[in-house]
Amino acid sequence: MSGSGLLEGRVALVVGGASGLGEAISHRFAREGATVVVGDIDGKAAQSVADAVVAAGGNAVAVEADVTKRAEVEAMVDEAARLGPLRVLVCSAAIETSGTVVECTNEDWDRVLGTNLKGPFLSMKYALPVMASNGGGSVILMGSVVGIMAAPGLAAYAASKGALVNLGKQAAIEHAPDQVRVNTVAPSATTSGLFMRFSDQTDDPDGLRERVARGTPMRRLGTADDVCDLVTFLASDASSYLSGVVIPLDGGMAARRP
């Protein structure tokens, strides 16, 4: 294990921690000394991430939970709280569907809002009081640049991520006196997030990725390491006076927009 122990002695619940960015965050948190609870709807995948963290010398357990189900989220938070002082919550579970406002089906709408918006709501609903009783903590919501500026064909996804921004500000204001901070990370396309799956479904995945990289001031896609560095900063005491903010992790894309 390398790392500087920035999260030593803390329990961190990573919801959606079994794949993509959540998986990378789980590993990074463990390297920084946290006891990681890998929460995911895919219990098997969560277990294999937890096993990998332990094999690398860290502490982790897996919990299977569907974030749209109240009782399952409550049980997941209870499990995390049993392991020690729960101080960090990352809401990284998300799904993406394409379709304009007119094309988006009722089922897709409900599914996307359920996972991307109600999931973080339920997770915070149960985790915030626990964190407050532990003397404070940090919540990191995984938003998206699409929650700040719109993108054609992502109606439900953009709505869910836009709403998440304000839910985060609401929670930040309400729980700041409890020393619980709530911030939102807004990544653009990353090489290990939903964008890869999304671009795979297009005719020319590589071409699309290249065009997106070219259109970004930093001239590349984001990486899991970029996300992990920012999330670790927000989880740690280095960001102790930051709350209720939305941080674009987008290589400068948002700077070009209102």
Binding site: K169, S239, Y241, G244, V245, G251
Partner: peptide, 26 residues
């Protein structure tokens, strides 16, 4: 916050505004 922005921890963050305000801007 300045250290974070100065270092490679923020190597994909540019053009961003980081409030350091205890939640006031929210």
């Amino acid at each position: 916050i300045a250290l974070f922005l100065a270092s490679d921890m923020s190597s994909y963050i540019t053009g961003a505004v980081m409030p350091g305000d205890g939640g006031m801007a929210a």
